[in-house]
Simulated assay, not measured.
Amino acid sequence: MADSLEGKSVAIFLAPMGTEEVEFTDPKEAVEDAGASVDVVGAETGDVETVNGDINPGGSYEVERTFSEVSVEDYDGLVVPGGCVGADQLRADDDAVGFVHDFFETEKPLCVICHGPWTLVEADVVDGRTLTSFHSLETDIRNAGGEWVDEEVVVDEGLVTSRNPDDLDAFCDKVVEEIEEGPHEDRETEDV
């Protein structure tokens, strides 16, 4: 995987609080190790605290660019980590949801783990897709028209999803693989 993403640029979301630390750090490290440049994108620039297991304090990480400062055209891939509180904040942020929707429309790899698929539901891009997530989102995904499956990692035409931190090895491998492959021009998108 070394240098397989050389010249590629990836955005990774970081919520104002409550992002699950390893779901942020592991994918970020994986794409950086593969040669990609990474921008940490959030609602406001500055340092934010992550969590471990949703309730224990994690480390502090810097949001480098805001949703309003970036464009989907700037990136070859997008990663949305989970964490119950963090994902809930992201799905309530119109700019974050708009970015996810617009990124999905580009047909470039969109990689989401754990509670992160809440942003997919809110962005109205789940209908007709097969995906996985933290088990408590199953009903939300089905109600949005998606097919929820209980699998380690699911890839549906460049949409990469995983259930929880236990799936990070498989998730990170697929993130790198899909970003290396590039856009899925056969992905059918619906205008909303």
Score class of each variant (00 low, 15 high):
69 E>C: 05
92 A>S: 15
73 E>K: 13
47 D>R: 13
87 A>W: 01
89 Q>F: 14
73 E>L: 02
75 Y>C: 13
37 S>H: 10
78 L>E: 05
61 Y>R: 09
85 V>P: 01
62 E>D: 07
71 S>R: 08
48 V>D: 01
49 E>L: 12
89 Q>K: 15
67 F>V: 02
34 A>I: 11
80 V>G: 08
32 E>F: 01
48 V>G: 06
35 G>Y: 06
65 R>L: 15
64 E>N: 01
56 N>R: 06
55 I>E: 12
80 V>F: 05
49 E>S: 14
75 Y>V: 08
30 A>Y: 10
56 N>E: 14
37 S>Q: 12
43 A>R: 14
79 V>Q: 00
64 E>D: 02
92 A>P: 00
89 Q>E: 08
73 E>R: 11
50 T>K: 08
44 E>I: 02
44 E>P: 03
61 Y>M: 04
40 V>A: 14
42 G>W: 05
72 V>C: 08
88 D>W: 01
49 E>Q: 15
34 A>M: 03
36 A>T: 07
45 T>D: 06
39 D>S: 14
62 E>M: 09
75 Y>R: 12
80 V>L: 13
80 V>K: 11
80 V>Y: 03
79 V>I: 15
94 D>K: 14
38 V>E: 09
41 V>I: 15
91 R>F: 01
50 T>Y: 07
52 N>H: 04
56 N>M: 14
86 G>L: 09
62 E>Y: 04
42 G>N: 07
47 D>G: 10
50 T>R: 08
35 G>K: 10
77 G>V: 04
39 D>N: 12
87 A>R: 04
59 G>L: 08
74 D>R: 06
63 V>M: 04
46 G>R: 06
53 G>P: 02
80 V>Q: 02
59 G>Y: 07
32 E>Y: 00
55 I>R: 05
39 D>Y: 07
44 E>A: 14
66 T>D: 02
83 G>Q: 12
35 G>R: 04
79 V>M: 08
92 A>W: 00
68 S>G: 04
31 V>S: 10
55 I>G: 00
73 E>D: 15
68 S>F: 00
56 N>H: 06
74 D>F: 04
88 D>H: 08
83 G>S: 11
64 E>Q: 15
51 V>F: 10
73 E>W: 01
34 A>R: 05
